[in-house]
């Protein structure tokens, strides 16, 4: 969409709004176009299932185990090999978790042989170094409340919010030059505000939403131009934001709820439907 069409659209709107007050002495200035970028860090962890979801999955997994075809051991394992013994032991454990402690006890071998099997499997695990621990689902930056870290809140969508020198929080934004396309302006404004030390991808050429800041009071009797900001969604793929210190005091990567606590109420009503609940 070219900025020219949008200007004509906005002009049509603003003249329709203020047609009653329009006089020849004070012509209404052209609206000022802005682009604003919703820079998103997509979730890097899967969401934690709720207790209901876990109960549902456990029940379905049990049903699946009960109804599935028997596993073809002889197709996948050499008979009597240690790999087969390990798989059988693991499978027995999983079956007992699914069907109860008593399940399959009668099939057990004599105790000596079972103990020998377990010892052999433990030895194999040591050789393969299988005792590696899984990484925690809570990152140190969560505990340290480091809002600048891109590793925080791994299960949520994070958005980059900037704080102006005057103290207000907003998304990165900038103006549109004459003859420039909106999505090109979005790219340029993002680089100008957040620095070149990150790889980003602007998702589409279409704006995903728009916002009209409150009208400014007339300056020396002259009406100020109306402002219209068009939002673009972008993803951060690598690097980190280094905002321009001349205009920006601080930045933070925030979830939707954290954005609400920092921005003004008017701004929040303009952007809340753009942000993801996930």
């Amino acid at each position: 969409m070219s900025s020219r069409t949008l200007i004509s659209l906005c002009r049509g709107n603003s003249s329709a709004f203020s047609s009653g007050r329009r006089t020849l002495a004070t012509p209404i200035p052209k609206p000022k176009l802005l682009t604003s970028i919703i820079l998103n860090r997509a979730p890097i962890l899967t969401p934690t299932p709720t207790p209901f979801e876990r109960a549902y999955y456990a029940y379905q997994a049990r049903l699946r185990r009960a109804l599935s075809n028997p596993f073809p051991y002889d197709f996948y394992f050499k008979q009597g090999s240690i790999l087969e013994t390990r798989f059988t032991l693991e499978e027995r454990k999983r079956e007992r978790i699914a069907f109860g402690r008593e399940f399959g006890i009668a099939d057990d071998l004599d105790k000596e042989k079972a103990a020998a099997n377990r010892a052999a499997v433990e030895q194999l695990a040591e050789q393969e170094g299988e005792s590696e621990e899984m990484m925690a689902r809570v990152h140190p930056s969560d505990e340290a409340r480091d809002y600048k870290s891109l590793d925080r809140k791994g299960k949520r969508n994070l958005y980059l919010l900037l704080q102006e020198n005057e103290g207000t929080w907003r998304f990165p934004e900038g103006n549109v030059k004459k003859g420039e396309l909106l999505h090109q302006a979005a790219q340029r404004d993002l680089l100008a505000e957040c620095g070149e030390y990150m790889d980003t991808w602007i998702v589409s050429r279409n704006p995903i939403g728009h916002y009209r800041p409150p009208r400014k009071a007339p300056l020396a009797g002259k009406p100020q131009p109306e402002e219209v900001a068009f939002f673009y969604k972008a993803h951060i793929l690598a690097g980190q934001a280094r905002p321009n210190p001349e205009t920006v005091k601080d930045f933070a990567w925030l979830t939707k709820q954290e954005v609400e606590s920092r921005v003004s109420e008017y701004y929040w009503h303009g952007v809340k439907d753009i942000l993801s609940d996930h």
Binding site: A42, P43, P47, L63, R64, S204, K233
Partner: peptide, 27 residues
Amino acid sequence: NLRVREYAPCRLSDHYHTTLSDNLMYM
């Protein structure tokens, strides 16, 4: 009539719902 439904959370399905579907709608 027994039917086995989803029996574990699915990583790519979550990825579709949290990220891809929004992007595809915009694109």
